[in-house]
């Protein structure tokens, strides 16, 4: 096959990319930087300074950071233990974590709603022991639980992969040179697993900061995240200019976080994400 024919094979993807990536981006840029009469303005970007918008962005950052941190605390020890287990056993457990991802995302979040509701399954079980009822639904806690539930596999997988790739000989070498279990972990396993941790953080934090569906279902109208604000500007207020402007601000925010992360990610493991 000559090069020209081979180039043709990229055709379907090019059509896709132009239609669903490049055009929408250009449209967001256009709407974000213009007003109703079509003239250039920065007002839509500066609208982030509006206390409601600023608070929503701040809440988003906090919740994204929170869910990232909780996922990390759960995922890291788990990935460490799994990577030390035999191939078959760890494969089964990884499979168990992947399994829910085969079910539609909305269904899972709605199921979570049933569990967390005031008269839900969780409170029924707790009530049996004389505890509660806990009012978890329609709070930041509910959103946090939902987000950790949703994104945990994205934290486990990259960390697990990187840990499996650590050469057992390197760990043996550290022990051989006098390192006890704690030193081996602190000076060999942890630094070598950092690229996986960074990938995991990126894969949880980035979708987390623009999350709005989980906030809608589990947070009700009590908690307003920046994702909800943008969603409402498009679907309720029909103000595409403001929605696009806030989207651009969010994108800039994400770019900055990524740039900071990449500075620490020397090995480039996380760069494959974008």
């Amino acid at each position: 096959m000559n090069t020209n024919k081979r180039k043709l094979l990229t055709g379907p993807y090019l059509v896709w990319a132009v239609g669903f990536i490049i055009l929408p981006l250009l449209m967001i840029l256009y709407y974000g930087l213009t007003n109703d009469s079509g003239s250039f303005t920065l007002d839509n970007l500066l609208a982030i300074a509006d206390p409601i918008h600023a608070k929503a962005l701040w809440e988003s950052v906090l919740i994204a950071l929170g869910s990232t941190l909780i996922s990390l605390v759960i995922a890291y020890p788990l990935a460490y233990i799994l990577s030390n287990m035999g191939g078959n056993k760890s494969g089964t457990i990884i499979m168990l974590f992947m399994l829910p991802m085969w079910i539609n995302f909305l269904l899972r979040i709605m199921a979570l709603q049933m569990i967390l509701a005031n008269t839900g399954i969780l409170n029924a079980i707790l009530g049996f022991f004389g505890i509660g009822p806990l009012h978890i639904m329609y709070s930041k806690t509910a959103i946090l639980i939902g987000m950790v539930y949703e994104y945990l596999p994205f934290m486990i997988l990259p960390i697990y992969n990187v840990m499996c790739k650590i050469d057992r000989n390197v760990i043996d070498a550290a022990r051989d040179l006098g390192a006890d279990t704690k030193t081996v972990f602190m000076h060999v396993i942890m630094p070598l697993s950092l690229p996986g941790v960074l990938s995991g953080i990126i894969m949880v934090f980035i979708p987390g900061i623009s999350e709005f569906v989980i906030a809608d279902i589990l947070g009700g109208s009590k908690v307003l995240l920046i994702g909800n604000v943008i969603d409402q500007e498009f679907s309720l207020t029909n103000n595409w200019h403001l929605g696009s402007g806030l989207s651009i601000v969010l994108m800039i925010f994400i770019f900055i976080s990524m740039a900071i992360m990449n500075k620490y990610d020397k090995s480039g493991e996380g760069q494959m994400i974008w």
């Binding site: 000989n169 006890d180 070598l192």
Partner: peptide, 20 residues
């Protein structure tokens, strides 16, 4: 006795240097 308590050292087949 654990490897880290022994007064001998190993040179591994694939060198096993710390890459970081």
């Amino acid at each position: 006795l654990a490897p880290n308590k022994r007064n001998l050292n190993t040179v591994f087949q694939k060198y096993a240097l710390f890459p970081h």
